[in-house]
Amino acid sequence: MRYAPLKERAPGRSLPTNLIRNQLLPHVAERRPGTQILDIRRAPAPYRSSWWLENLSLALDDGTVYHLVLKDLATTVPGSRTDQVKPRAVMNPDREPWVYQTLLEPSLDGSPPFWGTGFETDGGESCMFLERVEGVPLSEIGDFDAWLAAAEWLGEFHARFQGRPSPGGPLLHHDQSLHEWWFQRAVSYRGTEAFLGLESVHRRALQEALRTEPTVLHGEFFPSNILVEDQGGRYRIRPVDWEMASFGPPSWDLAALTSGEWSLRDRTQMILAYGRAAETAGSPIPPLDGLQRNVTACRMLLAIQWLGWGPSWVPPSPHRYDWLEDARSCAEEL
């Protein structure tokens, strides 16, 4: 794919339907040889993202209907300011399609089936097609069992890749240089006074996090990026939005899931659910106090990353939280 600068979609602008049809023809031919596309119905996707999303309903001449999501990998939603605050050093439009093609298995992990990528006409920016899956964001679910199910899913997913070399590709790698860069970026935006006493603790948090055996990470395992399908009392977890997929400490994803104003009891319950699932799947898990400390270290690193996104950026509502106070709170625990 061509690596183009991010841009904000102009109001009222959308990809021509004929262009979408042409991009989808080879994917339809692969799945339903000999069929033709009769109709494409389009609607804005109901869930918020920094990237432009559309729901597509594809009607074929044999009566088959496919429900897809089009995700524009180079164009952001008006007002999101993603093009201004997402550092190009960590953004790569090749990453998410690569993860779907290379690492994810819908039958195992509930991920949306990947159809393929396409290109826009005005400069060659890329877009991606996925099958639409059932579910609502975890952030909208009050049943704590759904949160425990997400923690269990995460433990099983991490266990599949732990103990193996990095898959490579365009994955981010959580190493010392990346997190030192995030800290300096946050300081440059917020001022040195805001981080008094935190730099040395940040170094300790980084050492603690990097002691663990790395694995493939979602990268932004926040509740708003986790779709949950209620299957009659059993929750199926379907993470989406893999733009920040990476290789690093497992507790990074667990820190994202348990971020926010949780009680110690509830956070501990999610950590325990994660540990049991990972251990059952064959992954070595430290004792609870060690795992909690590692999650706290990653929560601090995560808070610093949020503070480093941009000088005046306000996170979307699911992530609107006092991240500086969270960093200080984690520092006290460490």
Rank of each mutant, 00 (worst) to 15 (best):
R2M: 06
E8S: 10
R9H: 03
S14H: 05
L19T: 14
A29P: 04
P44S: 14
Y47F: 15
R48D: 14
S50N: 12
W52K: 02
W52R: 02
L58D: 04
A59N: 06
H67C: 11
V69I: 15
V69N: 04
D72E: 14
D72G: 04
A74F: 07
V77E: 15
P78N: 15
T82N: 08
D83E: 15
R88F: 10
M91S: 12
P97A: 07
Q101V: 09
T102K: 11
T102P: 04
F114S: 13
W115T: 07
G116S: 10
T121A: 14
D122A: 07
F129E: 06
L130Q: 01
R132K: 14
E134R: 13
E134Y: 05
V136T: 11
L138C: 11
G142Y: 05
F144C: 08
D145C: 12
A146H: 11
A146V: 13
F161Q: 05
P165H: 10
P165Q: 12
P167I: 15
G169M: 10
P170K: 02
L171R: 01
H174R: 10
H174S: 09
W182G: 00
S188Q: 08
S188R: 09
S188L: 03
R190M: 04
T192R: 13
T192Q: 10
F195Y: 09
L196K: 11
L198I: 07
L206G: 02
A209L: 05
R211F: 00
L217T: 01
V228M: 02
E229P: 01
R234Y: 01
P239A: 00
P239T: 00
D241M: 02
S251A: 10
S251V: 04
G260M: 06
G260P: 04
E261Y: 13
Q269N: 12
G275K: 02
R276T: 14
A278I: 09
A278F: 03
G282E: 12
S283T: 02
D289Y: 02
V295W: 01
T296L: 03
I304P: 00
Q305D: 03
Q305G: 06
W313R: 10
P315C: 03
E325W: 00
C330I: 00
E332K: 11
